[in-house]
Each structure stands twice: as C-alpha cells, then as structure tokens.
C-alpha cells in the first residue's frame, strides 16, 4: 500500500520534471520568439520595479531631512533665563522629544551681532529684542504629520510660549506629493502587469492553436484537460520566471547607470539615495516568484480559453 503510493508520487514527480524540461526545450528551440516575448514582459516588470526602487530611496531621503521637523519655541518676553532653563529641563524629561536645546537671548544677540557685523548698532539698542529660544526635536515615532500636530496642540497650551514655529504645511505638501506618487505608481504597476499578463495569455493561446492537431490526438488517446494544459503551464512558468530575471538585470543596469548622479545628490543633501537604489535580495526573490506566478496564472487563463472548445 505504502510502496504503491510512493511509486505513484515518484512517477508523478518524474512526469512533471520531464514536462518542465520539455517545455523549456521548446522555448530554447524557438529562441527568437521566446526572447521577444520575454523582453516585452520583462519591460513591463522592470518599469514599475525601477520606479518603486527610486521612490523607496527618495521617500527615505525626504523623511531624513530632519531640519524640517524641528520645532522652534519662542518664549514670551517676560520669561527670565531661570524659568527658561526650568522649562527646558522639563521638556528634556518628556519622552516625546529626543533633544532640547536652549538658546538664551543674550547669546543669540551676540551671535547675531558677530555674524551681521552690526555690533555697534546692536550695542546701542535700549534692550535685547530677542526672546529665549527652545529648539525641540521630536522623537522618530513622533515625526509623522498627525503626531506632530498633536505635539503642536500640547505646546500651544504652555504659558511660557509666545509662539512657535513648526512647518507642518511643508510636511503636508510633501505628504500629498508622496501620496500622489504612490497612487500613480500603483496604477502604472497595475496597468503594466495587466499588459504582461495579456502578452503571456496571447502567446500561450497561439502556442495552443499551433499545436491543435497534436492536442486532438492526445484527447483521442485519453488525455485529460489537466494533462493537455500541463506543458503550457510550464511554458508560462518559464516565460514569467525568465522575464522576472531579465527585469532584475535591466533594473540593475539602470541603477548602475544612475549611480553616479545619485552620489552627487547624496553629497549635496547628505542623503543615502545611492545605497537605497541597490536591489535587496528579498526584492529579487519577490520579483522572481511573483513573475513566475504571473506566468502560471496567464498560462492557465490562456490555455483554458482555448481548451473549452472541443
């Protein structure tokens, strides 16, 4: 009983292996047709992959531009240095902020005088017009737009604060653009993947049509639909897999070409776009497995659409 089941499993495995090999041989036997199909599908895979890679990098780079998230508190005129220090100490204890820096008004004025070379003029001022300043940096997990707005609410309630500056509008705009980019990327990806599927479906349908006589004979000697479909499923699998591999190669080539430009941007912005533009091996695995799945899926649609006609 057990050995019989084992024999069935082994012969099933052998038959699949043979079928996979034969489908591969058929693709290799028609190199021009196969490579055109694979190239077209690979392009459809590569374009969204490249955009995705680039957008991953730039999103990371944008969110790393810290200065935009720094909150500047301008303390009220009547707050003296001692209370400013107390407030700074209080906020340092607060887990919402990663750093708190106090800039005292006298120091700020001296700095300004030095930098602006207006020392004479400033010395003649009846009083220091600058307030004490607190520079707050929210913690990583508080840097989202919503969390920042909550922090803003809290800071507004502090008595010592005259007003404060947090450029949430800038962030809002950035987020809106990112949103638009993400949605567009999703739509473009969906359309291109649909295109890839249609190409593969069409190829499989032609393949079936050209082997109609052979298929009829196989039906006559007792082949099931599943048996007839199997070599075409493997063709779809191979076409998808090779397209995925070619797409990865194309994206690697493209990132090699734009690597120097990214390096220049990184140097200017202090970002790490260049490093982020490299493909990770997880991404490669995901691309290969999903392209093979897309191939299988397309082949099953293509084959079924033809085999229904007896």
């Amino acid at each position: 009983m057990f050995s019989k089941a084992l024999a069935i499993i082994i012969s099933w495995y052998q038959n699949h292996l043979l079928c996979a090999k034969q489908s591969l041989n058929k693709l290799v036997a028609a190199p021009i047709g196969s490579s055109i199909t694979i190239s077209m599908t690979a392009l459809a895979f590569a374009i969204p992959l490249a955009i995705f890679q680039l957008s991953q990098g730039s999103a990371a780079a944008l969110s790393s531009m810290q200065e935009s998230k720094q909150i500047t508190l301008f303390l009220a005129d009547d707050v003296n240095y001692a209370s400013a220090v107390t407030l700074a100490e209080q906020l340092k204890q607060d887990s919402d902020f990663s750093s708190v820096e106090l800039i005292d008004r006298q120091q700020a004025l001296n700095d300004f005088a030095k930098r602006s070379q207006l020392e004479g003029l400033i010395q003649n001022l009846p009083q220091n017009p600058l307030p004490h300043l607190l520079l707050l940096m929210p913690r990583e997990q508080n840097q989202g737009l919503q969390q920042l707005e909550q922090l803003q609410q809290r800071l507004e309630d502090l008595n010592e604060v005259a007003y404060f500056q947090l450029d949430t509008l800038w962030l809002q705009r950035l987020q809106a653009w990112q949103d638009l980019a993400n949605r567009s990327l999703t739509i473009v990806t969906a359309l291109l993947l649909l295109g890839a599927c249609l190409i593969l479906i069409n190829v499989i349908r032609w393949e079936l049509a050209s082997r109609r006589d052979e298929i009829d004979i196989m039906y006559l000697v007792g082949a099931s639909d599943r048996y007839i479909r199997r070599p075409f499923m493997y063709s779809g699998f191979w076409l998808g897999l090779f397209s995925g591999a070619l797409a990865l190669i194309l994206v690697l080539l493209a990132s090699a070409l734009i690597y120097p430009s990214l390096g220049r941007i990184d140097a200017l912005y202090g970002s790490d776009l260049a490093a982020k533009s490299l493909l990770e091996w997880e991404t490669c695995l995901i691309v290969l497995s999903s392209s093979a799945l897309i191939g299988l899926f397309s082949a099953s649609i293509g084959a079924n659409s033809r085999l229904q006609i007896r």
Partner: peptide, 23 residues
Amino acid sequence: RLLQDRNVFENVALPLRISGYSQ
C-alpha cells in the same frame, strides 16, 4: 493519427505517459 514531431517510441508511449506510468 501519429504525432509527427516524435519518434515511434514516444508515439507508442503517449497513452502510458497520460496515465502516469513510471519512467
């Protein structure tokens, strides 16, 4: 109704392959 792209052996083997006989 023979398959012209396969040799005699493969033509005769076809029903066995369809029924899943072992290699």
